[in-house]
Design a protein around this nucleic acid. Sequence first.
RNA 1: AGCGGGAUGGGAUAGCCAGGAGAUUCCGCCGGGCUCAUAACCCGGAGACCGGUAGUUCAAAUCUACCUCCCGCUACCA
Length: 683
Amino acid sequence: MTHEDFPTDDPAVVTAGLPYANGDLHIGHLRSYVNADALTRGLRKLGQQAIYVCGSDMHGTPIAVEAEKEGVSPEAFALRHHEQYEETFPQFNVEFDQYGHTHDETNTALTKEFVRSWEDNGYVHEKEINVAYDPEADQWLPDRFVEGTCPYCGEHARGDECDEGCQRHLEPGEIEEPVSTITGNPAEYRKREHKFLRLSALQDHLQGFINRVEGTSNAQNQPLEWIEGELQDLCITRDMDWGIDYPGEGADDLVLYVWVDAPIEYVSTTKQYSERDGDLDWESVWKNGDGEVVHVIGRDIIQHHTVYWPAMLEAADYAEPRAVCAVGFVNIDGKGLSTSKNRAIWAQEYLDEGFHPDLLRYYIATASGFERDVNFSWDRFAERVNSELADVVGNFVYRALLFAARNFGGTPDARVSDEVETEIAQAMDDYEDALNDYDLQSAGQRAVALARFGNEYIQRNEPWKLDDDEAAPVIRDCVQLVKAVAVLLQPFTPEKADAIWSQIGEPDSAAAATIGDCLQAPAGEFGEPEELFTKVEDDRVEELDEKLQSKIEAGSSDEDDEADVSEESATELEPLADERVSFEDFQDLDLRVGEIQTAEGVEGADDLARLEVDIGHEVRQIVAGIKQLHDLDDLPGTRVVIVANLEKAELFGVESNGMILAAGEDADLLTTHGDSEPGTKVK
RNA sequence: AGCGGGAUGGGAUAGCCAGGAGAUUCCGCCGGGCUCAUAACCCGGAGACCGGUAGUUCAAAUCUACCUCCCGCUACCA
């Protein structure tokens, strides 16, 4: 690896974060894959040898959990999604040079090799830890099979990360008050031998790495606090069946943690590519560092790529990556997308609307800075497609080529003017700089700016007022500009660039062109062009917006409309508890009728409401997570059932003295049928 | 509250890391031009004291401190 400007002598390997094989692809996923694809194509434009590899992430507990729910094997479940991804990506012109999956032979073998190297190099140690265990189901509960309370911030958290609170990665055994996500049973901790990778021994290396690595600033900044603190060793084994078996001794029933074999897929796919296509030696790239490895990821997995992964590579004597580029998220109409609320634009949905993939590619790759979140709305989509692609690029290409075809039957016989040559050369320079900064937005917009210059240039010279001899040099300039635009735009809109390419009579594909071709003379003869881009009409935007809105509304009303019990929600009903409690145990609960007197939001909390509830003997202050689910103004006067003798708790600094009973995710408040007085005992 | 990301003309964006010319570009608005072209294109104009306060500096959108407001983090979503 070097930190020299692209193009370098060594090949580049661009990777995209592995899609997790448990759901459909949406516009948010596409941002990573499109950006990485455009970056790869862009590097090639600079003359850099570059391949783009990726694969499906098949292992881990969420897939095991989902597959179990469906009653299929994890492998079948994951493969189904893997195959779907393989079909979807090319439809967006996302073209991997190799696309595999983490469960295939190459990755399985290579992952085991990595682990053996770590063992040989002394980076693995064994430690007895507490692992959550469901005694009733007789089952170990790795990662997301368990949830509970985060030991660092006290928030509710998943077994492997504090998703609601401090975002920390949690090691097995860390989570407090563990509960099984399968049965809802309280879990107990049992002692168990597990394998650990000594991140602590790699701290110096990681600190150096984070300062050397290129890419987006968020990738460099976010893990800083973590790396400078005390690194905990990483538990690399799990008690489950689905995954890659631990290769060493005495760990027969353990599989490797999913984040071990997932990034190794980057190497595996490179290896598969090498074996298929001899123009790249995977070992020299990954082991000797004679290559430029660039990881494109979502900003939610920065830690994995700036801490675990470089540690894993170093411990196995591999070279380090050159860059980690973390893309921002995609918002819809200004709000975060949500798959369960159906606030999303699905990949297939976009295509079904009949839009060309290149339009979305352009939008998504150039709408904002690489690491910034980008907002998607159909309105904005139409605006950018119409004004930038259709009006500027499409119109310039069309008017220039039509003029050339009608008056000259192709490229006029003339020399390119100094002005245009300089302009194109400037665009090439800017473009090269932008790509070296991993700045796709600038690169893409530079291509459009060149087309804008073209419009200005043809306007200023008014070839339609000139005779052919005088017009020839102007049109010659314009055709050159068209060619340059096609080359520069190709990484973003590959199919559209090819369309221009054939319109100007160039052989082959614009994919093979490099920026040097921007100034190469275009081919001679060509006929009349066709319009490149169709505009998105206003009423179409309206229609799409309505569709999106009603989809979102349907998605959220499903949740609070109990009459409309879908199949999906039916299967999500928690199983009934098998264990019976004694009548005495039940008597321990002091359930009372209460009447809400006041309700107000708790400062700083999204969900919490502070209630004052009359329970006959006294008025209690109770905090309940119902702020977003009920109109607080309507609550006073409502009769509720409360647990009066629940231990006190402090939430957001407010004491809660009891608990309001409510049903389900929507906090449907339990009330009384008649008019029992506040304080009446419930039995 | 914590973590992360923001706040720049009416809307959307760039510039901030490496402080210095008239603060970029797109949409919209006003006026004009052109008519080869997808009612497109081109030119000109109005419109921002760059969230607030204080500081560093010859010089601050950019650096520092504090503050205000917004967004995501509850269904695993990049």
